[in-house]
């Protein structure tokens, strides 16, 4: 794992409070599970129909009925519970998921999120993403700060088809931690060795810079 992804995943894990129910999207967000301390007793929701995602199974002990939302074999922890798709998304839309962590193609200063559709390319579908962000108490975007070609992903206004409007609360990248507020995007923390100028140069939206900025490293 690259240091950048590890830094992001570790910091996102800090958004969870003891006893929270969380949902981790596919890819980078899934790594957050590695940094959730057991003492916090966080339970993870799997959109395909259960609470209590456990560690990956030992080779040879995979169970066809215990898979995550990516179809990969997982385990279910003691106290885990299975349910149908209506309950699964009822939990999400109904405000019962404390923290939902997703990746993004674009985020803007109004907290709009685009992560499901690039016109002209193959459209895989939104799956559960639209529901997972409309009801979660806290929506945290975990992503690399820019596109592969270096162009910004944190914009004044999203250009891609939206997943949802005004839902993003926090953005965590390898450069820093940002909070989306009514006034705009506030820079809360910087990664080690990153300056305000560095992060602003790679961000289209104008970051609001408070007097004190924390360190992202824990």
């Amino acid at each position: 794992m690259s240091d950048a992804r590890e830094l992001i995943a570790k910091r996102v894990a800090d958004f969870f409070e003891a006893g929270n129910l969380g949902n981790l999207g596919i890819g980078l967000p899934t790594l957050v599970a590695n940094y959730l301390p057991a003492a916090k007793n966080v339970m993870l929701h799997s959109e395909n129909g259960f609470i209590g995602i456990g560690p990956n199974p030992e080779p040879g002990t995979e169970d066809k009925d215990i898979v995550n939302a990516g179809g990969m074999p997982v385990t279910i922890v003691p106290g885990g519970v299975a349910f149908d798709s209506s309950m699964s998304f009822g939990l999400a839309r109904g405000g019962h998921v404390d923290v939902s962590v997703l990746g993004a193609l674009e985020v803007d200063e109004k907290g709009n999120l685009a992560n499901w559709n690039v016109p002209g390319k193959l459209v895989p579908g939104m799956g559960g993403a639209m529901d997972l962000v409309v009801g979660a108490k806290k929506v945290v975007i975990a992503m690399e700060h820019t596109q592969k070609d270096g162009s910004p992903k944190i914009l004044n206004k999203c250009t891609l088809p939206l997943t949802a409007v005004g839902v993003v609360d926090y953005i965590v990248t390898e450069l820093g931690v940002m909070e989306v507020t009514d006034e705009g995007i506030v820079l809360r923390e910087l990664a080690p060795g990153v300056s305000v100028v560095d992060i602003q140069c790679k961000t289209e939206a104008t970051l609001i810079v408070p007097e004190t900025i924390g360190s992202m490293e824990r």
Binding site: N48, G49, F50, A82, D84
Partner: peptide
Amino acid sequence: VYRVAARNFNPL
């Protein structure tokens, strides 16, 4: 009766 993640849309 269904089993864990094999329930999903079946009961609906």
